[in-house]
Computed example of a mutant assay.
Amino acid sequence: MKSPLAHKPAVATLAGPGLIASFLRFAALGGGVGVLSSVAVSLLAVTMPWAVANAVVTAASTLLCTELHARFTFARGRGAGWREHWQSAGSATAAYLATSVAVWVLHLLQPSPGLVTEQLVYLGASGLAGTGRFLVLRCYVFAVHRGRAVRPLARQGTVSVSALATAA
């Protein structure tokens, strides 16, 4: 006898704890690593071009944050697998571009900005990019998949502001 679930379409549901709880965990963990990353970028930029320092720090912090988010933010109960790391790397690439462009624009407008100004621009761009990363990680990378063939929520047209709000 076939399982009653065998004929149901695959569904990806929102990951882990509620929206607010997971966002607060994301902000605490990702924000903490982000602040440490901003210090690391500044220190490395003394010895290499800023964009290279940002790339090195982004790669290291993405690996760390993906593990933290798998275990704590989205309560997967295990570390991230290769699939999650690769998908998270995609959203981290967008965050890297956002922070690099923001600092590049700052340097165009003010050729020798102070360290505090550069850090404020970097952290501001990081915060905006982090909000986008949270949505990608929650709705796609760490979404709970049920069924055989899984399609991302965004392609199914099932993600909406009201769906995210009710997940809280």
Score class of each variant (00 low, 15 high):
R133A: 08
L14I: 07
L29Y: 10
W50Y: 06
V39N: 00
W82P: 11
A143N: 06
A27C: 08
L14F: 07
V159N: 05
S42I: 01
N54R: 00
G157Q: 07
V11F: 10
V141C: 11
L123P: 00
H85W: 09
L43C: 08
R71D: 08
G18K: 12
G30A: 02
W104S: 11
S160E: 13
L19V: 03
A163V: 15
L135P: 06
G31Q: 06
L137D: 13
L5Y: 15
L19R: 01
R76I: 05
K8P: 01
V11Y: 03
S100F: 11
Y140F: 12
V103C: 10
L36Q: 01
S160R: 13
A10Q: 07
S91C: 15
Q119D: 08
V11Q: 05
A12L: 12
G132C: 05
R25F: 00
R138S: 02
G157P: 14
V11C: 04
L44W: 06
F74Y: 14
A89Y: 11
S37I: 06
R148K: 13
V56F: 05
A95W: 00
V35N: 07
K2P: 14
T166Y: 05
L153I: 13
A125K: 01
Q87K: 11
L123G: 02
V103S: 10
T99P: 03
L128R: 06
A70V: 08
L106S: 11
L68S: 06
A70Y: 13
V161Q: 09
A75W: 06
A40H: 03
H69D: 09
L19P: 02
